[in-house]
Measured scan of single mutants.
Amino acid sequence: GLTEEQKQEIREAFDLFDTDGSGTIDAKELKVAMRALGFEPKKEEIKKMISEIDKDGSGTIDFEEFLTMMTA
Rank of each mutant, 00 (worst) to 15 (best):
G1T: 13
L2Y: 08
T3L: 03
T3P: 04
E4V: 09
E4R: 09
E4T: 09
Q6V: 07
K7Y: 12
Q8A: 11
Q8M: 08
E9W: 12
E9D: 08
I10T: 01
R11F: 03
E12G: 10
E12T: 10
A13R: 04
A13D: 01
F14R: 00
F14A: 00
L16R: 11
F17M: 05
F17A: 15
D18M: 05
D20M: 09
G21Q: 07
S22F: 02
G23T: 02
T24G: 04
I25E: 02
D26E: 06
A27G: 05
L30K: 00
K31S: 14
K31P: 15
K31Q: 15
V32N: 15
A33E: 00
A33W: 07
M34P: 00
M34F: 15
R35S: 13
R35A: 14
A36I: 12
L37I: 04
G38S: 02
E40H: 13
E40S: 12
E40W: 13
P41A: 09
P41W: 10
K42F: 10
K43P: 15
K43N: 15
K43D: 15
E44R: 04
E45K: 04
E45T: 07
E45F: 11
E45P: 02
I46R: 01
I46L: 11
K47W: 14
K47S: 13
K48Q: 12
M49W: 11
M49D: 02
I50D: 02
I50M: 13
I50R: 01
I50C: 08
S51D: 12
E52L: 13
I53F: 14
I53C: 11
D54E: 09
D54A: 12
D54M: 12
D56M: 10
D56Y: 08
D56L: 13
G57I: 07
G57M: 08
S58D: 06
G59Y: 08
G59D: 07
G59A: 06
T60F: 03
I61S: 00
I61V: 05
D62S: 15
F63V: 03
E64H: 11
E65W: 12
E65Y: 12
F66Y: 02
F66R: 01
L67T: 02
L67E: 01
M70W: 05
T71D: 04
T71G: 07
T71Y: 09
T71W: 13
